[in-house]
Design a protein around this nucleic acid. Structure first.
Length: 272
DNA sequence: ACATCTACCTGGAGGC
DNA sequence: TGCCTCCAGGTAGATG
């Protein structure tokens, strides 16, 4: 379940093995991801040097001289570094083969991920152009959320999961951040005060940062791993803890349904 | 402009 | 053992 911390952990794990390497081939075993993988991707990228690896929201950007490979892990995608001769499994759809003898292999059982090509400024790509604020950037704060939410009647949880408002917050961290901020997930976004948004912004940043730190601790096994390295085991406060005692007040955690997603919350700690 | 729902896909869990 | 149903996850795109 790649959310921002998993994507960032992946980026950091790939970085030392891919930066300044050149691409000698891209093997496409199955182009049918969320959008078709460009059939000429190997020709577009062959013999080019990887000049950078960055992240925008949950998108990974592999920068080359003539353009950018845009990668999204969807809901089940992972990237690993392997010897390029390693036999591929059923869901190993793409290999980016490097001159070092290693390859970056995309595994994505559910194929909701994406591998795309962008010439020119990748941030102007339609998928990236209208994305919201980066929660870990310096200019992220409660005021931004406060301003963007005025006049909005939808639930605060929907709002913070909307990538056009703020990027990188999926179901897990939306639940966790709202718990940490003491905000009920069903509260109308437009009715939340400025101070509460300040607290929520801190909670979002803190939750994501802690997850990145936890993920970083398993990075040493990134090469040749089974794809689980880089994914952290976090002790959740509310996520998937329905019926279990709140870690703060012992009250049973409740669950409900919002936009076809399960929401977990503490009825005592999270006020409307 | 905003709110809500659907579609995409597979593997795992639980019920029978 | 097998079949069936449900659920998880991210988000663009359609519809209201």
């Amino acid at each position: 379940m790649p959310e921002l911390p998993e994507v960032e952990t992946t980026r950091r794990g790939l970085l030392p093995h891919s930066l300044h390497q050149s691409i000698i081939d891209i093997v496409i075993r199955n182009p049918r991801l969320r959008w078709p993988v460009p059939g000429n991707l190997a020709e577009l990228t062959r013999n080019q040097t990887i000049t950078g690896l960055s992240r925008r929201g949950k998108y990974l950007l592999m920068h080359l001289d003539s353009g950018t490979i845009i990668i999204h892990l969807g809901m089940s995608g992972s990237l690993r570094i392997l010897d390029s001769g390693t036999p591929a499994g059923v869901h190993d759809h793409i290999d980016i083969v490097l001159n070092s003898g290693l390859c970056i292999r995309l595994r994505d059982p559910r194929r909701f991920g994406a591998v795309l090509w962008s010439e020119g400024d990748p941030y102007k790509h339609p998928l990236l152009a209208s994305l919201g604020v980066e929660p870990l950037s310096d200019d992220f704060n409660g005021d931004i959320l406060y301003r963007k939410s005025r006049g909005r009647s939808s639930a605060i949880k929907s709002l913070i999961m909307d990538s056009h408002m703020i990027v990188g917050v999926g179901n897990i961290y939306a639940n966790e951040a709202l718990f940490q901020a003491g905000i009920h997930p069903e509260l109308a976004a437009g009715k939340i005060s400025r101070p509460r948004y300040a607290r929520l912004a801190l909670a979002i940043r803190d939750t994501l940062n802690k997850a990145i730190i936890a993920g970083g601790s398993s990075l040493r096994d990134f090469v040749g791993s089974d794809g689980n390295a880089g994914y952290f085991q976090q002790q959740y406060f509310v996520y998937s803890r329905s019926g279990m005692p709140c870690r703060n007040c012992d009250q049973p955690i409740k669950q409900l349904r919002q936009n076809q997603r399960t929401t977990f919350y503490c009825p005592l700690c999270q006020k409307k």
